[in-house]
Design a protein around this nucleic acid. Structure first.
Length: 472
RNA sequence: CGGGAUGUAGCGUAGUUUGGCUAGCGCGCCUGAUUUGGGAUCAGGAGGUCGCAGGUUCAAAUCCUGUCAUCCCGACCA
C-alpha cells in the first residue's frame, strides 16, 4: 500500500501535531485571518449539524423550547452578578464604537448568555403559573483566549446553551442532573465516547454557579477533555437580577435556575478518541456519510448500474450514503474516505459482478469481507462498528485509569502513563492546588462514588473521591 | 501575555547565510488520449501582491524596523 502523498504525523509520536494535521486534511476546518478563529468547512459543519439534530430532538422531547438572544451584552448587565463577571471579564471582547461614534456604554460580545436570559426572565416571569421556563439557544459565543486550538479552544465557537427557571431548588437540581444524563447518554450512544459523570470542585466550577456538573472523557494521549457541563445556579442569579414570581400563597419568591451546554469541542473529542494514523474515524451514528460506495471503474456501465442499485437500496434504509462517480482512481477514493473517517466502504468492480457480490471494508478494523449483492445487511455492520468503537474507547479508558494513595504515586503514574487517576481528597483548596503544582494534573471531577480513605495530598480523612488528570 | 520556530501558487517546498537577469521544483488543477481491484501514464496548459506595511539600495523573496497569522513550550483559561 502506498503512503498518502502528505502522510499525517504518527499519532503516538506527536499527538498535538497529528491532531492539527488531521483537522485540516480531513477537511474539517481552515484557519481564518483572525487569530484563533476557525472556518468550519462543509464536512466539519456537517458533523456539527448531526450533533445539533440529535440533541435538539432530545431537548424537544424534554419540553425545551429554542429561542435566540442578542449577540451583545451591555456592560452594566454583565456586571450584575459579581462572581460571574469576575470569572468572564478577562476573556470578553468589547464593542466600543458604532459606526464612527464612540458608544456611551460599551457592549460585550456574549461569552455566554446567562445575563441576557436573566434579564428576559425578570420581564416575563410573574406567577408560579409561568414556571418552569425551559429555554435553549443554538448560537456562537466569543472568548478572547490567549492560546487557541482548533475545536478545543477557539475565539469564537458554536454551541448550545440551555437556560431554565424553576420554582424550587430541588426541581432545578433535578433539571441539572437530567441534562447531564442526556449529555452523557449522547456521548456514549451516539459519539461512542465513554464519559465520567461528576461534580466540579469549588475551584473549577462555573463563575456564578452553586454547583457545576461535568462529563469528562479521556483522549487517546491520556489527557482529559471536559465534554459538557450542567450548572445549578440556585437563586443567586435570581437575586442579582431580581427574578421574582408570586407563589400559590401570594408570596414573592425568587426562581431557581440552571444552565447547561455542549460545543463544537465535541468534534475535537471525536477526533482524539477514535482517530488513527490513517485519519479520522467517525462513529456511524454521527458520520455525515455512513457508507461510501466506490465503483472500481467508472467506464463500465454494468458496474455503475450495480453501484447505483446498492445506493438505492441503502438510501431506502435511510442510511447516509455517497456514491462516488468521479473519475479519480479507485485507490485515491479509498484513501480519501479513510481520511474523512467514513465508517463503511463498499467496493464494486467487474470481479465482484462475476460473483454477484460486493466488497465491504470497515474503517475501524480495516477488515475486508465479500457479501452477495442480494443478501447483505449494511445496518448490521454499522451497528457493529458503532459498538466496537465504544468498546475500544472504554477499554482504553479503563486501561488508563489508575488509583493513587499519595502524591508520589500520583506523580509517577502521570509521568509514565498519563490518564485518569482516582484518588481521595480532603476537600481543602490548598491540597487541590498542591496536586496541580506538583503534578500538572487538575481535579477533573468529584466522583458520584463515595470517598473511601485518606487525602492523596495531606493524608487526612477524605471527603471526596476525585478523578484527576492533565486536561485540554 | 513571555520564550522559540515558521510564513514563497490550492498543498508541500528550493532559493534567504554572501541582495543581481524572466522566482525553480513536486503534488494537485484544466485539456486530450490511454487507463482504473490500494493514491495511473503520456503530451500540452493555466496558476505568484514571495503574509502585510514601511525603510536601506542602482537593484530586495533575500538586509533593517514594525505588524499580522500559524505551530511548539510556558503562564492563563469554561
Amino acid at each position: 500500500m502506498k503512503k498518502y502523498v502528505e502522510a499525517i504525523t504518527d499519532m503516538d509520536k506527536d499527538f498535538a501535531l497529528w491532531y492539527t494535521d488531521i483537522v485540516k486534511k480531513a477537511e474539517l476546518i481552515d484557519y481564518s485571518s483572525v487569530r484563533g478563529c476557525m472556518i468550519l468547512k462543509p464536512y466539519g459543519y456537517a458533523i456539527w449539524e448531526r450533533i445539533q439534530k440529535i440533541l435538539d430532538q432530545k431537548f424537544k422531547e424534554t419540553n425545551h423550547e429554542n429561542v435566540y438572544m442578542p449577540i451583545f451584552i451591555p456592560e452594566s448587565l454583565l456586571q450584575k452578578e459579581k462572581e460571574h463577571v469576575e470569572g468572564f471579564a478577562p476573556e470578553v471582547a468589547w464593542v466600543t464604537h458604532g459606526g464612527n461614534e464612540k458608544l456611551t456604554e460599551k457592549l460585550c460580545v456574549r461569552p455566554t448568555s446567562e445575563t441576557l436570559f436573566c434579564e428576559h426572565y425578570a420581564n416575563i416571569i410573574q406567577s408560579y403559573r409561568d414556571l418552569p421556563k425551559l429555554y435553549n439557544q443554538w448560537c456562537s459565543v466569543v472568548r478572547w483566549e490567549k492560546t487557541t486550538r482548533p475545536f478545543l479552544r477557539s475565539l469564537e465557537f458554536l454551541w448550545q446553551e440551555g437556560h431554565t427557571a424553576h420554582t424550587t431548588f430541588e426541581e432545578a437540581e433535578q433539571e441539572t442532573l437530567k441534562m447531564l444524563d442526556i449529555y452523557a447518554d449522547f456521548c456514549e450512544k451516539i459519539l461512542a465516547i465513554p464519559v465520567i459523570k461528576g461534580k466540579k470542585t469549588e475551584n473549577e466550577k462555573f463563575a456564578g454557579a452553586l454547583s457545576t456538573y461535568t462529563i469528562e472523557s479521556l483522549m487517546h494521549d491520556g489527557r482529559a477533555l471536559q465534554s459538557g457541563t450542567s450548572h445549578n445556579f440556585g437563586d443567586g442569579f435570581a437575586k442579582a437580577f431580581d427574578i421574582q414570581y408570586t407563589d400559590k400563597q401570594n408570596k414573592l419568591q425568587y426562581v431557581y435556575q440552571t444552565s447547561w451546554g455542549i460545543s463544537t469541542r465535541l468534534i475535537g473529542a471525536i477526533i482524539m478518541v477514535h482517530g488513527d494514523n490513517n485519519g479520522l474515524v467517525l462513529p456511524p451514528n454521527i458520520a455525515p456519510i455512513q457508507i461510501a460506495i466506490i465503483p472500481i471503474t467508472t467506464k463500465k456501465s454494468e458496474v455503475i448500474d450495480a453501484a447505483k442499485m446498492i445506493e438505492a437500496k441503502l438510501k431506502s434504509q435511510n442510511l447516509r450514503t455517497k456514491l462516488d462517480l468521479t473519475d479519480k482512481s479507485a485507490g485515491w477514493k479509498f484513501s480519501e474516505y479513510e481520511m474523512k473517517g467514513v465508517p463503511l466502504r463498499i467496493e464494486i468492480g467487474p470481479r465482484d459482478l462475476e460473483n454477484n457480490s460486493a466488497t465491504f471494508v470497515r474503517r475501524d478494523t480495516n477488515e475486508k469481507i465479500t457479501l452477495p449483492l442480494n443478501n447483505f445487511d449494511a445496518k448490521e455492520i454499522l451497528d457493529a462498528i458503532q459498538k466496537n468503537l465504544f468498546d475500544k474507547a472504554l477499554a482504553h479508558r479503563n486501561k488508563n485509569t489508575f488509583n493513587a494513595e499519595n502524591l508520589e504515586q500520583l506523580e509517577k503514574i502521570l509521568s509514565n502513563t498519563p490518564g485518569f487517576i482516582k484518588a481521595n481528597w480532603c476537600g481543602n483548596l490548598n491540597c487541590e492546588l498542591a496536586v496541580k503544582e506538583k503534578t500538572g494534573a487538575t481535579a477533573r471531577c468529584i466522583s458520584f462514588e463515595p470517598a473511601n480513605g485518606k487525602c492523596v495530598c495531606c493524608g487526612k480523612n477524605a471527603q471526596h473521591l476525585v478523578y484527576w488528570a492533565k486536561s485540554y
